[in-house]
């Protein structure tokens, strides 16, 4: 009898992904308006995280740049990238649609509208017990994906994964129009929101990181815990039911979790497209289609991808900065075309 070897996460895949992420992060921390010595960066980080006193040789100013500007920004980029990639993978599994992505499903546009409402009409965040921005963004994102689902699946004949995406396009256009209307009415917040729409990770200090961390952690735990269920969903709702899995419930939980994470990411970073489609697909091509492998690896590679994109965004036209959404779209749109071409077998 043969030894059955199921598809499982290999330890060295995780180790490799962790190494890629660490190297990316250290390189990204070292480059910027002021370049820092990579060796000293490593020493300074070790100094903070160990009980041993090591002198990195940095001046107080360099230390401040490293710990109050660079590292928070790289950590934020990592969290946002990991969340968007994970959410993209979760949406793809839930909707059994290789093209699903927070951006294309109208989640990001909905979250954007919600966040615009928060910026325009709920200023003075100190008045609120919690920051209203992620809550507004979450509600908007949920509305976006729900509308897309209804519109995309209202097609009775010829329903394919493309109809869902077309629904998402219509919903996103509508929500974006609503957002633009709001912006024109509230001209004084226009600049603030406009910068935000293109995606930005400019941050000083750790407040944004701390703001989204709880949401991101919840999303991560729920989606990773459900990764085996997404593999069962891949045989369709009825067969999943025959295998003892309540597919609509799994889908609901997954979509809620992914939307929560997306909304949190959108609320601090603006609209950053294509991460949710590029990263899970690249992982799929290299490591196979099983969600139990794909989702955990998407966290690492999503983080690394956005850290690199952000590094490009803040160095390529220095001293000016490109919006990070421009960089991801520039890399992502051609990749999307590639995915579209190669996924013909999946009913696209």
């Amino acid at each position: 009898m043969i030894t059955v070897r199921p598809t499982r996460m290999e330890v060295w895949w995780v180790v490799g992904a962790g190494a890629v992420l660490s190297i990316t992060a250290i390189v990204a921390v070292s480059f910027g308006a002021v370049d820092l010595d990579i060796g000293s960066v490593v020493v300074s980080i070790m100094d903070r995280f160990s009980f041993v006193e090591i002198d990195s040789g940095f001046t107080a100013q360099q230390e401040a740049i490293l710990w109050e500007i660079r590292i928070p920004r790289v950590v934020l980029a990592g969290l946002v990238g990991a969340t968007l990639a994970l959410a993209g993978g979760a949406y793809q599994g839930s909707f059994r649609n290789p093209l699903a992505d927070p951006y294309l499903l109208g989640v990001a546009a909905g979250a954007g509208l919600g966040a615009t409402l928060a910026i325009a009409y709920a200023p003075g965040t100190t008045m609120w017990p919690v920051d209203p921005l992620p809550l507004f963004a979450f509600s908007g994102g949920l509305m976006g994906v729900a509308l897309t689902y209804v519109v995309g699946y209202s097609v009775r004949a010829g329903r394919t994964s493309v109809t869902l995406i077309l629904g998402g396009v219509a919903v996103a256009a509508f929500l974006t129009a609503a957002q633009t209307y709001l912006l024109q009415r509230e001209a004084e917040t226009l600049r603030q929101v406009y910068a935000w729409i293109l995606g930005r990770l400019s941050t000083v200090g750790w407040s944004e990181v701390l703001l989204i961390l709880p949401y991101v952690v919840v999303t991560g735990i729920v989606v990773i815990a459900g990764r085996r269920r997404l593999d069962v969903l891949s045989v369709g709702d009825e067969e999943a039911h025959a295998l003892g899995v309540d597919a609509p419930r799994v889908r609901l939980v997954m979509v809620l979790a992914a939307t929560l994470g997306t909304a949190a990411a959108v609320s601090v970073a603006g609209l950053i497209g294509f991460v949710g489609i590029i990263v899970p697909h690249a992982v799929r091509i290299v490591f196979g289609t099983s969600y139990r492998v794909l989702l955990p690896l998407s966290i690492f590679y999503g983080a690394a991808f956005l850290i690199i994109a952000d590094l490009i965004a803040r160095t390529i036209v220095a001293p000016a900065e490109l919006p990070i959404g421009v960089v991801t779209a520039f890399l992502g749109a051609p990749f999307f075309a590639f995915v579209l071409r190669s996924s013909r077998g999946a009913g696209v």
Partner: peptide, 15 residues
Amino acid sequence: PTLPEGMRVVDYVLL
């Protein structure tokens, strides 16, 4: 049956 693209036979039977 719905066949998930890229799924190996062992993983399918394990479902």
